[in-house]
Structure formats: C-alpha cells, structure tokens
Nucleic acid binder design. Structure first.
Lengths: 236, 236
DNA sequence: GGAATGGTTCGATCAAGACCGTAGCAATGG
DNA sequence: CCATTGCTACGGTCTTGATCGAACCATTCC
C-alpha cells in the first residue's frame, strides 16, 4: 500500500546485476526469450527463469507465450525511461578515478541508439533540436506539443497525423509527444507516440539500421541526407 | 566497471525500504540529519548511519558537516528525476497486459513459412506492415480490426468478407484478426480468421507453394507480383 | 509413438546485508 | 573538566535471495 514500499520493491528488482543486464537487453523494445536473456546475463536458464518470474509477477515485465517459447518485454514504456534515468545517475556517479575510456561500442551508443521505441543519443537530441528550432514542436519539461507547421511536416514525410492526433478514440492512448531526458546527452529527445512514429519511419525508410547485438543504430548515407534535408538536422 | 554493474548497484541502493524512505524524504531538496532520516524510515540512528554511509560512498548522497550535525542531500539533481521515474513505474505497474503467439527456425523458415494456418516469417510480417501502412487493418498488442477499406480490398481479392465479418452467428468463432508475434522477426504478423483466409488464398492463387518436408513456403514469381501489386508489400 | 528442445519447479547451498545493542568518537555547553 | 548530544564503528543474529544441479512439464520434430 505505501508507495515507498512499492518504490523500493521495484528498485530492488533492478538492483540485481543479472536482472539489470536482462532488462537492459530489452531496452530496444524487442521481446526476448528466457534463454537469450540468460545468455546476456551470464546465468543459467533456471536462474533466469526465476528472475523473469519475479519480474513478471511484479508487473514489470509482460510475458507472451507461444508454444515452447516465452517472450519477455517491458510491461510499460515507463520502464525504459526508468532505466535511462538510472543510467543517467550511474553516469554522473562515475568515479573520477577512471577518466572514462569509452569503447567503440559505447561511442556508437552515444552517437545514436534506440531508447525503447524511439531514437536517442546525439541523433535523437539533434532531431529534437531541429524540430524545436523550426517551430515544428515545443518541448516543455514534462510535455510537448506539435505545432500546425509540425503537423504539415509529419504528414509530408508519411506519418499519419490524424492517427497520431489528440482526437484518438481510446482513453488510454499514450501521450502524443513528450520529452525524454537523454542519458548520454543530458538533454531531451522526443518520446511518446511521435517518438515511436519517427523511429519506426527511420527504420522503414532505411535512414537507420540496427547495429548487431546492440541498442546502437547506424545512420545510413541515405539517412544522413534525409535527416538533414527533411528534418533540418545539423550534424553534431 | 561495466555500466550495467553500476546501474544495478545504484538500483540496489534504492531497493531497500529504509533507504527508499530516507531518499524520498529528501525529494524536496532539503538537507536532513541522520536522526531525522532515521525517524522517517522507522529505524535506529545506528542503522540509518550505516545506510547513509553506503549512499554517500557510492556518490548518491553528499554529506555536509556542521558542528555535530551532518546534513545529507542528493549529490545530483538527477537523483530526483530517478526517484520520480521510479514512482511513475511503481504507479503504472497496477495495470497488467497481455499478448500473443509464434515460433520456428532456419533460413528458409525465416523468409516465409506457415504458422499453424497463416503466413509468417519476413513475408508474413511484410504483409502485416503493408496492410497497416495502407490502413486496411489496425493491430493492437492483443487484438486487431479490419477497416472499411480493408473490407473492400478483401472482397476485391476474393476473400468472402461476409463470411469473415464480425456478424458471425456463432459465439465461439475464432477472432477475425489478431496479431501473432513472429518468432524470427519478433514483430507481429496476421493471425485469426483473416490470417487463415489470406494464407489459404495465397496457396490457391499459386502465390506461394510449400517447400517439401518443411513448414517453409516459397514465394512464386507470380506471388511476388501479387503481393506487391495487390497488397502493396515491399520486399525486405 | 519416441526424441529433442525450451522452460519451469524443487531442493540445497551459500553469501550479502539489514538490524540492533553496545561501545567509541567528536562537538557543544556548562 | 565532565556531561550531553549527534553520530559512527563493531560484533552478533537472522532473513533474504541468488545460484545451480537435477528432475519435471510442454511443445514440436521426426
């Protein structure tokens, strides 16, 4: 009942290295099997199964079973934001001892990655900056809106504005546009249904592609052009 | 050293009820003493001291000595955002969810196969994507609907819409359209009576044929054209 | 109908750490 | 100086839970 107790229990679930590794592996929004998760966490399937059962009964994960496979994913996108917040704090906590030797993989993550179902990293922040600069969207600290010119742009690049719009039929639809504080850039990028749509479009149009075995995404040459010419994104 | 380990250690620090209570008490930005924090957490000062020492050496809290008092506060504002994210997830976790089904393997199988009685693999997912893109269907996480334009299309290609329609006489008919999580693609394709009908049609029209001794199916040249021209399926 | 594979349950082991009582340290006030 | 107060260090108890081996269950393959 007390929110503090529930808060602590959620945090405790993230507090085990094996579970944290499994959850981080789900950050790109894919649904993974127990065996795969056991692999990334470096534990046996039995142990992974026990962890996953706890996470699922706690409501943190949702399980989809088919045949002899069971796919696990976040129960709510809020989990992705939570993990980003955690990474943010973990990064700021960084001991000054080691002067941040960023491996190539880490560098790729900082350049561009998916944050659950939207784009993050320098790319994600640059997109947000460009859209704000052009007055297509406005981002507040905890909410965002799409301007009329933004609606025109989105329609032009093939995002179904009407389908994204506020007049949705369902009550529990995700918020259209919201800021998500970027873990590496420490500045907001675009989340919400708009973030999801932009991310999806970027994959479908071949502007970005996944980097094998990572949340990082690579911007294709075609994507470089598209982001610059269509969205007005400036590199850096 | 790996960010995952640090992430987990930070989360573990928040995962104890006593520590969580103390941290929540600092959410307004005030600096509090060990005794005060022990009070809000319902523990003795000795125990609180031990907790605070851990939080401080971890870099999560900053301590400030003033005479015989020691004031504790967040080391970084990011901590406040982290706690907010935690509260957010803790609040959202009340709502359960659900989803669906799939699963095989092999190169040919990944390209195209049958999943029980409907099409799966890259082909199945591409069909689903195309129909969604064209607004002929909508797929939610656990259900799908066919739009009016979708009904027209189905009728046009020879699928008996009336017989598939929602006005079925029997109570226990299979659901018309539902997503089925693709084993290889990890994204939904179309199942339900619609999926069955599309699969059946594809065989009857010679768009696909079975691969001997396998669940894999091969797309015929005729099928390539048909899927592209009739359903708007894009290769890949 | 087996056999193989993905997944979970059970039981036992074992380490981490949460807690408190007592004692020790440091700063203030007489 | 001694007493008081805020806090920490030490040592002990006890619970939690992370882990793996082995057995079991379910599904699919042959």
């Amino acid at each position: 009942m007390p929110t503090t107790a529930k808060l602590a229990s959620v945090a405790a679930l993230l507090g085990d290295p094996a579970r944290a590794a499994m959850l981080q592996a789900m950050m790109d929004g894919r649904a993974l099997t127990a065996s795969e998760l056991a692999g990334v966490a470096g534990i046996t399937p039995q142990t992974a199964s026990s962890h996953l059962a706890r996470l699922t009964t706690a409501g943190v994960l949702a399980m989809e079973k088919q045949g002899r496979h069971r796919y696990h994913r976040f129960a709510t996108p809020a989990m992705a934001r939570l993990l980003e917040s955690l990474m943010h704090v973990a990064a700021e906590i960084e001991t000054p001892r080691r002067a941040v030797v960023t491996g190539p993989r880490d560098a790729a993550l900082r350049a561009a990655r998916t944050c659950y179902d939207h784009l993050a990293g320098r790319l994600g922040v640059a997109i947000a900056d460009a859209l704000i600069e052009a007055r297509h969207i406005e981002l507040d600290s905890d909410a965002g809106i799409v301007t009329p010119s933004g609606l025109v742009l989105l329609d032009h690049i093939g995002i179904d504005v009407a389908h994204l719009g506020p007049g949705g039929s369902e009550k529990h639809r995700r918020i259209l546009c919201r800021p998500c504080l970027d873990w590496s850039e420490r500045r907001p990028h675009i989340a919400g249904r708009l973030g999801t749509a932009l991310c999806r479009l970027s994959f479908e149009k071949g502007w970005v592609r996944r980097v094998e075995g990572s949340r990082a995404v690579a911007v294709t040459p075609k994507g470089q052009r598209a982001f610059r010419e269509v969205l007005g994104v400036r590199p850096g």
